[in-house]
C-alpha cells in the first residue's frame, strides 16, 4: 500500500534462455510458490528492489503516525483517545516488523532511516495530506487503513518469506484500525448536522488521495512487469484500486453520506463500480515533495530522530559499561 512507484532495479524481464542456472532455479521456486528466505541465493536486482519496496513501506508506517498523533491530545473522549493511542503504537510496531524484514536483505535500519532523511527514499503520498479535524481521523482509519489492507492482504502471498510474514502479522492488527475508523466516522455521520457535515467533508477530501495510494494506473506503471514475475507485487495497481472502490461504496451508502465522486456508478457488464481517476498530476506533484505537508512531515521525522540521539547513545554507553564491568568481575 504504502509502497508506490517502486522502480524495479532491472530493465524488463530476462527471457528464460538468457538466465543463468541459478537464476532459472530461483525463478522456478517463485513460480512454484516456494518462499525465498534470507540466506537463499537471489538475483541482486531482486534484493535491491525488495529493499526499496519494504523500506518505503516501513517509512510509511512510521510517518503515518504523524497525522494521527496530531489528534491524540484532542480526541473527543477518553475511550477514543485510548483507541487512537493503541493504533498509533501499532503503526510503530508495523514499521519495526518491516525494517526487520528489510534488514534480512543486508541493509541496516539506521541506513534506511538516513536515506529517508536525505530525501533518497520516500513514503506513501497519503501522509502528505493534513488531518484537519476529528472526522479526518475516522476517515483515515476507515479509508487509508482500508486501502492498506487491500494491498497488504495481497502481499501476504509475496515471494520473500520475511516480507510475507510481516504482512500476515500486520494484517491481523490492521483490521482493528479500519474498524475503529469506521466506528468513529459512523458516530459522526449519525450525529448532529454539523458532525455529519464534517464526516462528509472528510470523505470528500480523503477519497481521491486514498485512491492514489495504489499508485499510477497500470498503463503508466512501467516497473510492474518484473516485480510481478518475481511476485514482489501480486496484483496490479488498478486491480487493487477497483477492489477497494467496490468494497467501500456500500460502506459509504450505509453511512448515508453522498458519494465523493459523481461518476461512481455500478457497471452491470463489468460487475464493478465505475469511478473517476484521481488527479494524477497532483499525485506526481505530491510524490515530488510538493504536497500540503511534505515539508512538515520530514521536519518532524528528522527532529524526532535527532532529538532521540542522546537517548540511543546513552543507553548504548550504559550497556557497554555494564558488559565491561561484568567481564572485569569474571
Amino acid at each position: 500500500m504504502y509502497a508506490q512507484m517502486i522502480k524495479t532495479a532491472s530493465n524488463g524481464i530476462k527471457p528464460r534462455e538468457e538466465m543463468s542456472e541459478e537464476e532459472r532455479a530461483f525463478q522456478d521456486k517463485i513460480d512454484n510458490d516456494i518462499k525465498i528466505e534470507p540466506r537463499d541465493w537471489m538475483p541482486e536486482d531482486y534484493r535491491r528492489t525488495l529493499i526499496r519496496q519494504i523500506g518505503q513501506h516501513a517509512h510509511s508506517e512510521v510517518v503515518g503516525q504523524l497525522p494521527e498523533g496530531n489528534w491524540i491530545t484532542r480526541a473527543p473522549t477518553l475511550e477514543r483517545k485510548a483507541i487512537l493511542l493503541a493504533k498509533v503504537q501499532d503503526e510503530a510496531g508495523h514499521g519495526l516488523y518491516l525494517y526487520s524484514a528489510a534488514e534480512t536483505l543486508g541493509v541496516s535500519r539506521d541506513e534506511l532511516i538516513e536515506l529517508l532523511h536525505e530525501g533518497k527514499m520516500k513514503y506513501s503520498s497519503i501522509f502528505n495530506y493534513p488531518t484537519l479535524n476529528w472526522a479526518d481521523i475516522g476517515a483515515v482509519g476507515w479509508l487509508v487503513d482500508g486501502a492498506a489492507i487491500v494491498n497488504q492482504v495481497a502481499l501476504q502471498r509475496t515471494s520473500y518469506g520475511p516480507y510475507s510474514r510481516a504482512m500476515i502479522r500486520i494484517c491481523k492488527e490492521e483490521s482493528f484500525h479500519a474498524r475503529q475508523g469506521y466506528d468513529a466516522i459512523r458516530a459522526m455521520a449519525f450525529g448532529t448536522p454539523e458532525q455529519k457535515r464534517q464526516a462528509q467533508d472528510a470523505l470528500n477530501r480523503l477519497w481521491f488521495p486514498a485512491l492514489m495510494m495504489f499508485g499510477p494506473s497500470d498503463a503508466e506503471s512501467t516497473h510492474s512487469e518484473q516485480s510481478m514475475a518475481w511476485k514482489i507485487k501480486v496484483k496490479s495497481n488498478d486491480e487493487l484500486r477497483q477492489q477497494f472502490v467496490d468494497q467501500t461504496i456500500p460502506q459509504i451508502e450505509y453511512l448515508k453520506l453522498d458519494l465523493p465522486d459523481p461518476n461512481i456508478k455500478w457497471n452491470e457488464a463489468r460487475g464493478h463500480y465505475d469511478f473517476s481517476e484521481p488527479d494524477w498530476p497532483e499525485f506526481f506533484n505530491v510524490i515530488k515533495g510538493n504536497g500540503p505537508c511534505n515539508v512538515d512531515r520530514m521536519k518532524d521525522r528528522v527532529a524526532a530522530w535527532d532529538d532521540g540521539e542522546w537517548v540511543r547513545e546513552g543507553l548504548l554507553a550504559h550497556a557497554r559499561k555494564k558488559a565491561a564491568r561484568k567481564v572485569a568481575a569474571e
Partner: peptide
Amino acid sequence: GSLHAPDAEMAVKNARDVYTR
C-alpha cells in the same frame, strides 16, 4: 521476529511492547 535494543534487559522490555500487545 526481531528488534533492536542496547542490551538484553531492554530487548525483553521492547519485545513485550512490540510482540505481546
